[in-house]
């Protein structure tokens, strides 16, 4: 961790036109799960600008290696071997050190290890499908996995998810909490996915597509995808204007 004082200012207002709205009928499950009333705006108090810190002691040796973290000794998960790396930054471009990043995904055939999952593609006995890591002092992270497969899902009668990896990210404040999904460069399934299409802005979608990075492959082992994650920025503290005792 950098030896700098913690930041205590509120976060930039969230641009809610950039995020998917709550009610997106093309994604049917959102219809009954979307609040219909206006959110009440709440400028960051201590309750929002603070957040927990996770120590490296929570991490196991293979938490960031999905190829082996569920595999039997000496075995490995099946599929295209890839390395996913990037930085967790805020909107100012500042790297966020110590951010907990959790990820989960389907196996190479598009099947999740979950009791409610019914897709006919087989489970891989050596693939659990999840991992986690904590960013370094520059906000960098990396993990190894296999490329997940696309899969059909019950929405429209012929809807398929593009290959994707789910990400859950903690920044430094509870108001930065974010869950999103990473897609893969060049996948034509991205642009016909009802969940992707909940995002109104094409540039916001492009921001979730990881780039194939042939400069960072591991030769004769795995290709690399770069995926940066941007969390809300923090306001500067030039001047405080507040009414005392009001």
């Amino acid at each position: 961790m950098k030896n700098t004082p913690p930041e205590t200012t509120p976060f930039f207002a969230r641009d809610r036109a950039w995020h998917p709205p709550a009610f997106t009928p093309g994604y049917k499950t959102s219809v009954l799960r979307s609040p219909q009333r206006a959110l009440i705006s709440l400028e960051g108090t201590k309750s929002e600008i603070t957040g927990p810190v996770f120590g490296h002691n929570i991490l196991g040796e293979f938490d960031n290696d999905l190829i082996v973290n569920y595999a039997k000794p000496g075995e490995m998960a099946l599929g295209e071997r890839i390395l996913v790396y990037g930085r967790v930054l805020d909107e100012r471009g500042v790297g966020i050190a110590g951010a907990l990043v959790e990820f989960w995904q389907a196996n190479a055939g598009g099947r999740y290890r979950h009791k409610k999952e019914t897709y006919l593609a087989p489970l891989d006995p050596n693939f659990g499908g999840f991992g986690r890591t904590i960013t370094d002092e520059n906000g960098g992270y990396v993990f190894k996995t296999i490329k997940p497969g696309p899969y059909p899902w019950p929405n429209g009668v012929n809807d398929w998810r593009p290959a994707h990896i789910h990400f859950s990210v903690f920044g430094h404040g509870f108001a930065q909490r974010l869950i999103t999904q990473m897609y893969f460069e060049g996948d034509p399934m991205i642009w016909i996915c009802p969940i992707v299409k909940t995002i109104p802005d094409e540039n916001a979608i492009k921001g979730l597509i990881a780039a194939l990075d042939m400069q960072n492959t591991v030769p004769h082992d795995m290709r690399a995808y770069k995926f940066d994650i941007i969390l809300r920025g923090r306001r500067s503290t030039f001047f405080e204007s507040r009414k005392e005792g009001n």
């Binding site: 998917p20 499950t29 930054l89 471009g93 989960w104 979950h114 789910h166 859950s168 995002i199 916001a204």
Partner: peptide, 19 residues
Amino acid sequence: TYFKESASQTAGPYVHIGC
């Protein structure tokens, strides 16, 4: 020169696998 926050996507039905 500001970045935009990564757009949110649903946690989906299998959030428990990861979290």
